[in-house]
Write a protein that binds this DNA or RNA. Structure first.
Lengths: 116, 116
DNA sequence: CTGTTTCGTTTCGGTACCGTATCATTCAAA
DNA sequence: TTTGAATGATACGGTACCGAAACGAAACAG
């Protein structure tokens, strides 16, 4: 059964998500970083810096910096493309998959608490 | 794998929200700021710096800085409490209400696909 | 080879944020 | 009236981020 959210419920869901991220000591990503991370984990590979920048409508340095930060947190990894060594291929990691999975759980859990 | 499907849709919802915020030239708030803003607009007043800090489990300077930033963007306003001049009362603005309403629209637009 | 284009990265100046600690103002109790 | 507590703002050192520009490496075209 599809959920038909009313405005107040939609905003409560959004606040629950934001709150869960704020309260936890989980790696708190900016919205940009979250959009990049979710794209990597939801869209089929391969993912390149340029491709991600174009898809999200941000500049390349933004992607590079986001990959720096999330790479330090082991949420993604970078590898040179051996077929075209100009390219960098962005790949998923176990830690990143767990983080994304937990993120989905938060949405589902909080969504389930909404009064319908 | 029905569980996987539901998780995937929850994450798509989350990505849609993040993407909408990234692509627009809308004031891009951090998750902390968003949690503060939504609390102001969803919970009944009055809202004080200390109260918000306690409710969100963050320090007072975090709230002060968030109010600085969002105040500059006219999303909230601050007023001294005349009954106890130590307090600062945080109030809603027209611009803030419009921003929050738009935020709810984004969730609703994508939320119909989220099964619960 | 020698440009030229395409990558991703780095640099630059500037802004915003963090947590801790401290501040001035205000109120309230001794 | 003086002392203490409470509130919100600010100083500090550090980190991360932004857009624009310049950069080196790699691929490509002639």
């Amino acid at each position: 059964m599809p959920l038909h959210l009313r405005a107040g419920q939609a905003l409560e869901l959004l606040r629950s998500i934001a709150l869960a991220e704020v309260r936890d000591d989980a790696p708190d990503l900016s919205l940009r970083q979250m959009a990049i991370l979710l794209t990597i984990y939801l869209d089929p590979p391969p993912h390149t810096v340029r491709g991600l920048a174009a898809k999200l409508n941000v500049t390349k340095p933004v992607v590079t910096r986001a990959l720096d930060t999330m790479g330090a947190k082991k949420l993604v990894s970078r590898h040179r493309d051996e077929r075209d060594r100009r390219n960098v291929l962005v790949k998923r990691t176990l830690e990143g998959a767990l983080y994304v999975e937990r993120l989905g759980d938060v949405v589902i859990a909080r969504g389930g608490e909404l009064p319908l």
